[in-house]
């Protein structure tokens, strides 16, 4: 990366003007965090800075002893020569794009983002900049998300049909963000709603941020219930565990952007895939990248090669950020 504002270091994106890293790995004195997902917010750093609504989630992730400072969206803070502000990324609650200005040059690190509607987090805000570091998890034109409302309807219809057969509905969704989004769309009155404790640990923070959620029963390791007709929301990691196996005779669903491709869904071996992503789809990526009016675009996470070449052919100076050290789990 050639610019005066940011550079790549083994720990991640570094701002020499302010002597801080964005979403670093390893151990650094000062970390500025885009959002509280584990591949962005890692423990072991000296001090953390994030957006206000991200802070309680980050606290769950990092524990009581971490030193976390936060500021409201839109406010700026001076760190050395750098002016830093947070702007909603629309990815999950508290997620932010980080705007960094050094000597009049503005760069934005997107973190993960989506411009689509999501009732569980702050709406994406477009930030004009000279340089834009964009995620591109779904950087192929085959990824186009249906309306959020439609997916919620599909989930509820599926749940209802399963309940009519007296069968439980088990949906796998990432425990922070996706799970709450699924819960927020559920119609109360179809049946009981359970969630894995990993999902529940974030619920109160969503509620205190004003997100409307149905009442959810926390499901521990042992309870043996009659789950017929219930909805259970759990992280994908427990799929093969005893926790999930005791929910007998259930139909399984999976909520993810990857579910828009049949091959991916069949490999998951679930009954139903729901195309619900907390990342931008292809039209969303293009819309945002063009909207920033950035002269330089760097792409991270995913199909960078394709999107970079496509943008180049449109006359945009885009390239893939060398992230050989920046190994990331795909959105699951």
């Amino acid at each position: 990366m050639r610019c005066d504002v940011l550079e790549m270091r083994p720990e991640g994106i570094y701002c020499p003007g302010g002597d801080f890293f964005v979403d670093p790995r390893g151990s650094v004195p000062r970390a500025v965090i885009t959002h509280a997902h584990s591949d962005h917010a890692r423990s072991g750093h000296g001090h953390y800075l994030c957006a206000n609504s991200c802070k309680p989630l980050l606290r769950v992730r990092l524990g009581a002893s971490a030193s976390i400072e936060s500021i409201p969206y839109g406010d700026s803070i001076q760190i050395g020569d750098a002016r830093v502000s947070f702007h909603p990324a629309g990815h999950i609650l508290g997620s932010a794009q980080i705007r960094i200005e050094v000597k009049g040059e503005v760069w934005v690190v997107s973190g993960d983002y989506k411009p689509q509607a999501d009732r569980t987090c702050e709406a994406f805000e477009l930030v004009k900049c000279h340089g834009f570091i964009s995620e591109c998890t779904f950087g192929l034109p085959v990824y186009k998300w249906p309306e959020e409302e439609l997916i919620h309807q599909q989930v509820n219809q599926w749940w209802k049909a399963n309940a009519e057969d007296d069968r439980p509905s088990l949906i796998f969704a990432y425990s922070l963000g996706k799970a709450q989004r699924i819960l927020a769309g559920l119609e109360s009155g179809i049946g009981k709603i359970f969630a894995h404790s990993a999902v529940c640990s974030f619920l109160e923070h969503y509620k205190s941020a004003g997100v409307d959620l149905p009442s959810v029963i926390k499901l521990g390791d042992k309870e043996k219930e009659h789950f017929g007709g219930s909805m259970i929301v759990a992280p994908p990691a427990v799929e093969d565990s005893r926790w999930a196996q005791r929910i007998r005779n259930c139909r399984k669903g999976f909520a993810s952007g990857w579910m828009s491709i049949r091959g991916a869904r069949r490999r998951r071996n679930v009954d139903r895939g729901f195309v619900l992503s907390d990342h931008a789809d292809w039209p969303g990526l293009l819309e945002v990248i063009k909207g920033t009016e950035a002269e330089v675009v760097k792409l991270t996470h995913g199909n960078g090669d394709v999107l970079a070449r496509y943008l180049q052919e449109m006359g945009i100076n885009a390239s893939v950020l060398n992230e050989s050290f920046y190994v990331r789990e795909e959105e699951s």
Binding site: L140, P141, V142, K144, S260, I261, G263, N303, V306
Partner: peptide
């Protein structure tokens, strides 16, 4: 590139 990712021509075309 899309076909490579999707692995099924009919599906690729439909998605596009």
């Amino acid at each position: 590139e899309c076909y490579d990712r999707v692995g099924d021509l009919a599906e690729t075309l439909s998605l596009l």
